[in-house]
Write a protein that binds this DNA or RNA. Structure first.
Lengths: 224, 224
DNA sequence: CGGTTGTATGACAGTTGCGTGACAAAACCC
DNA sequence: GGGTTTTGTCACGCAACTGTCATACAACCG
């Protein structure tokens, strides 16, 4: 998921941009002035910034320069002005791209993707979910018990991740069938079988499970 | 000094571009077809490529895809077509920017600078990636096992780099197809074959791989 | 306490996923 | 242009996985 910050003083345009970008699958936030934008970006950094040039108070060029001073976030100018002079000045100030309003949302989205492809920063560490001595790493496709790798099958892994994602909360067999298998209907006993197999692998004593617990009549949950 | 390759079939336009860019301080070279461009770029790589979309023979989109397959060079499309559909398709194919002819040379130059600023930022911190006794240097295009150089093909190398870049994370066959081959759809077994070939070269015992691991049902990953 | 309902588990057969070698097409290199 | 390397397709076989079923066990209820 990509976070986008839109700095644009015209309420109608800003709203339209935000809605369209949200539609394209971005997580969005918008502000009306450069000052707000700088503050917001410092406080809660987005992955990409869209900025208008004609802003009240601090103008777009200065806004770009200050954003650049803080970090390396990709910046796209979205402006009504198509003057070469403006374009050059904005790019020189540190912008990565410049599009002229009105712009097709599909084009804007494609430009954002191209830019992010370029700007990909250092890879962040692989996240790990921990439940006591049980470790689950969805990205690495790995499960460990007391530090030792445990081999689980794809279905077991998905089931475990689903439970881990909602740690501490009961998930009914029906919910699990839907989320792990994509079944809308089917034999709910299937879940039992896989839970059982999973327990053999991740519990010290599969007979009296500590993490993957049964809630009679309700479903299963994963606890710490 | 920046080297720029211009792929443009119209002699007058190509010449005009080359002269203008030279005036801006770039070292330039030009070709009239995609085929020539690919060849030239492979043998004498420029730092940036400008490419037209309407080319005789291999068209611009395919040209972009093939350039991308070889390396990470910044690509700017310079086209007379301003259709959103074309713009999106070109960016999706791997272009970094898209400008519509006629374009002010000052703007083009500013866009090239912005792009190079961005492109230069990435490759610094990755001289050599190490996985146990396996060494990969993406920049030098070299792979070593226990200090000894290993000869891998271009595709194998790209596959290995992609896996190395996301070390420790599972990459699905689909993701690999997209990132290494640029295919949006296709036979995922293709990945298996190349993984197999790669294992023959980089693993001590290809039968039970230590680094290039299969995660059944999920994909492959590279581990230390 | 016996009946009832819900859960655990082992066995099994059908299916899926993966590794591999063979081969043809394409790209490459003098 | 011809020989060589690289790439992509295919088919086969093995191993692992999946879902179903039957049976045994545990919890709940009056």
């Amino acid at each position: 998921m990509t976070d986008v910050l839109v700095i644009e003083d015209d309420d109608r345009i800003r709203l339209a941009l935000l809605l369209a970008l949200e539609d394209e699958g971005y997580r969005v936030r918008g502000v009306a002035t450069a000052e707000e934008g700088l503050l917001r970006q410092r406080h809660e950094p987005a992955d990409t910034v869209l900025v208008d040039l004609m802003l009240p108070g601090l103008d777009g060029f200065e806004c770009i320069r200050r954003l650049r001073r803080d970090d390396d976030v990709p910046i796209v100018v979205v402006s009504a002005r198509d003057d070469t002079h403006d374009i050059v000045a904005a790019l020189e100030a540190g912008a990565d791209d410049y599009v002229v309003k009105p712009v097709a949302i599909k084009e804007l989205s494609a430009r954002l993707r191209a830019l992010r492809r370029r700007a990909r920063a250092v890879p962040d560490p692989v996240p790990v979910l921990t439940f006591g001595q049980l470790e689950i790493s969805p990205d690495a496709g790995e499960v460990r018990r007391a530090g030792r790798p445990v081999q689980v099958t794809r279905t077991e892994f998905r089931l475990l991740c689903e439970l881990a994602e909602h740690a501490g909360r009961v998930l009914s067999r029906h919910q699990l069938l839907q989320r792990v298998w994509g079944y809308d209907t089917g034999d709910e006993r299937l879940v039992d079988v896989h839970v059982g197999r999973l327990r053999q692998k991740i519990e010290d004593d599969p007979g009296s499970p500590r993490h993957l617990v049964t809630l009679r009549g309700l479903g299963y949950k994963l606890t710490r």
